[in-house]
Simulated assay, not measured.
Amino acid sequence: MEKYVCTVCGYIHQGELKNDIICPICKVGFDKFELLESNNTFKDFIVVDKVKENELVTSFYLKLKEGTLKKHKAGEFISVMPIDKGENSKEVRQYTLSMKPGEDFYRISVKKEEMGIVSSYLHNNVEVSDIIKATDSLGEFTLSDSKKPLVLLSGGIGVTPMMSMLYEALESGRDILFIQAVLNSSAHTFKDELEKIVDENSQVKKAIFYQTPLEEDKLNKNYDFEGFVSDRWIKDNVPQNGKFYLCGPVGFMKHIYNTLKSIGINEKEINYEMFGAYQDLAE
């Protein structure tokens, strides 16, 4: 049976690809599907490192067992199949690549979901030297060529594509504002990595928001602002001529999207990705 992969979200369709096929996850049409066997089969990847980022997120570093690793574009994801229960029972999930494009490995940073079959399996069962099956990189949520100031806004695990975009954008020399909203230090992913980038690159500025800081969290050390990313803060701090990329919970992105529109940002300058079923933020 032929299999087709949605190049937008990674959903895999089995069977004939008809013109009326709509992706059940991101709602795109059949023209966004590609034949899986012909260009992007599942391949063996060796887990070469496993790093706990915080209480919720663990990063897995993957190297291709054989062949040449495809260079990914910042914002792309891979489909991962660590659990194979037979031809009719395969558990596949999509995880955005979170590292600099051009490395000789892929890095996925996985949040352990309470009811997540695959995320729990990765956290609890997959160790260094294990082999998992994954695809080459896919996706259309990528940086466009531009010299405009870049604003990367993330909520929670939505930071993964933002981190890869940050690395790619460093080479352009453009001004970058990295806005990250998290619960507190227990869920703050890439804190040290981001601080190193900011220290070494004068064109990068950051704004870290903790919704509910822990007692040990210190303002201006662990984070920059307490609470949510407010309308007023956005209006006072983002560049009017910027290019915006959003990723995170739907409520977070709706708030950011509507605020940006309210201050006159053209919707063509606002780009976003959903982790899960697609929703139009304009609706």
Rank of each mutant, 00 (worst) to 15 (best):
C6Y: 09
C9V: 05
G10Y: 00
G15A: 12
L17H: 07
N19D: 14
N19C: 04
C23E: 08
F30P: 02
K43T: 12
K43I: 07
F45G: 12
V47G: 07
D49N: 15
L62N: 10
K63D: 10
K63A: 06
L69D: 06
K70P: 00
H72V: 02
H72A: 12
H72T: 03
K73I: 11
K73T: 06
M81F: 05
M81S: 14
P82K: 07
I83Y: 04
D84I: 08
K85T: 06
Y95K: 09
T96P: 13
L97E: 11
M99K: 08
G102D: 07
G102A: 03
Y106F: 14
R107D: 02
I108Y: 07
S109I: 08
V110N: 09
G116C: 09
I117W: 09
V118Y: 06
Y121M: 12
N124C: 03
V126S: 07
S129G: 02
A134I: 08
A134D: 05
S137L: 02
G139V: 01
T142Q: 02
T142R: 01
L143V: 05
D145N: 14
K147M: 11
K148I: 00
K148M: 06
V151C: 01
V151P: 00
L152M: 07
L152R: 05
L152D: 02
V159S: 03
M162P: 05
M163P: 09
M165H: 09
L166K: 10
Y167F: 15
Y167M: 04
E171P: 02
D175Y: 09
F178C: 03
I179F: 00
V182T: 12
N184F: 08
A187N: 10
H188P: 01
H188I: 03
T189G: 01
T189K: 04
K191F: 15
D192I: 05
D192V: 04
E195T: 11
E195G: 07
E195R: 14
E195V: 09
D199W: 01
D199L: 13
K205V: 01
A207K: 06
A207I: 00
T212C: 04
E215M: 13
N220E: 14
D224Y: 09
F228V: 14
D231G: 00
Y245T: 02
C247M: 10
V250K: 06
H255V: 01
K261S: 11
E267K: 14
F275V: 03
A277F: 11
L281Q: 03
E283H: 07
